[in-house]
Structures are given as C-alpha cells and as structure tokens.
C-alpha cells in the first residue's frame, strides 16, 4: 500500500454529502400520483444525525417536483407498533434500524416509497439504493458510492432514470 499525500482538499464530512446524494436521487426518480399541494416528505429512521443534516433542505427551501421538502424523523421503536409512513416519498434506513428492515419493508410494501440505506448488505435485503464508502483508486481518501437493487424498485411504480443505473453498482 503506497502512502500518498493526504489530500489537502481535505474532504467533506460524510453527512452533508449524503444529504446531497439523497437530494440528487430525487431528480433521477419520478413519483406517480403525488397528492396535489402536498410537500415532498423524506423520512429517516435510525439515523438522527443524518435527519438533522437533512433539515438543511428545508431551511434552504429546496423543492422536489416543485414541492417543498419536509423532513420527518421516525423512531426505531415505531416499527414495533406498525410503521406509519403513508405520506413518505423517500425513507432512509439508518444503521440503527437495519435490524428492523423486514418490518420496514412490510410497512411500505407495494407503495411508491424509495428506500435508501447506508449499511453493508442492505441492498440485498430489499433497500433500493444503498450507499457505501469506496477508497479512491489513487489512495487519496474515500468517495461515496451506491449500489442499486432493481428488484427492490419493482412494483412500486417509481420511474428511475437510466442515468442513475449508469453510475451505480447494480445488483444482479
């Protein structure tokens, strides 16, 4: 392993980067039949730090499909009594909730909800987009990458741009 200069670009904290990725994902995906006048809801379960970082989208008055973004935090324990995510368009499953993934999948089965995660193996367990850190080929740090599971998108009515598949690691 060669030692390289630690990049003076210094890198970006991972949470703002994940926020930017999530925001960009919404531009490559189409949600059918969004209720008129309703906000675009991004829900987060199992990652309060990311939930807080996502509130920058609200403060910055960012919009998806010309709707204001709203961030909703879901407590992990809510999976015990039945997860309510009827108004969600995107649900982020954090590491602290990965053990509850089966209950989460049941709660949003067949609905137009994009499931996103960041824990190893989560895409194979049914999450549509799962991010991970990949070491730079020249050894100058790490970059955020993501894998996609087409089977996890099937049956949800979401329209996914082929551009997203081009930059993702697609599970067979």
């Amino acid at each position: 392993m060669a030692l390289s200069a630690l990049s003076a670009f210094g890198g970006t904290a991972v949470e703002p980067l994940k926020v930017a990725y999530l925001y960009h994902f919404t531009h490559f995906i189409g949600w059918p039949d969004l209720p008129p006048g309703a906000p675009f809801v991004i829900a987060v379960i199992g990652d309060p730090v990311l939930a807080e970082a996502l509130r920058a989208l609200e403060r910055d008055e960012r919009r998806v499909e010309n709707r204001p973004i709203r961030i909703r935090t879901i407590e992990t324990r809510e999976t015990e009594s039945g997860l309510q995510c009827d108004d969600c368009q995107l649900l982020f499953v954090g590491a602290a909730a990965q053990d509850r993934i089966d209950r989460i999948l049941d709660a949003v089965a067949g609905r137009a909800v994009l499931l996103v995660g960041d824990s190893p193996g989560l895409a194979r367990r049914g999450v549509a987009i799962n991010s991970f850190l990949k070491a730079d080929i020249l050894g100058e740090g790490e970059r955020l990458r993501f894998e996609m599971n087409p089977a996890a998108l099937a049956g949800r009515g979401l329209k996914v741009s082929s551009q997203l598949y081009e930059v993702a690691r697609v599970l067979p």
Partner: peptide, 9 residues
C-alpha cells in the same frame, strides 16, 4: 462532480 467529492478522512 458530486461523485468526485472526497469524504473527510
């Protein structure tokens, strides 16, 4: 460009 942003080490 976002794909090229480096994560702090």
């Amino acid at each position: 460009d976002l794909l090229q942003v480096e994560v702090a080490s």
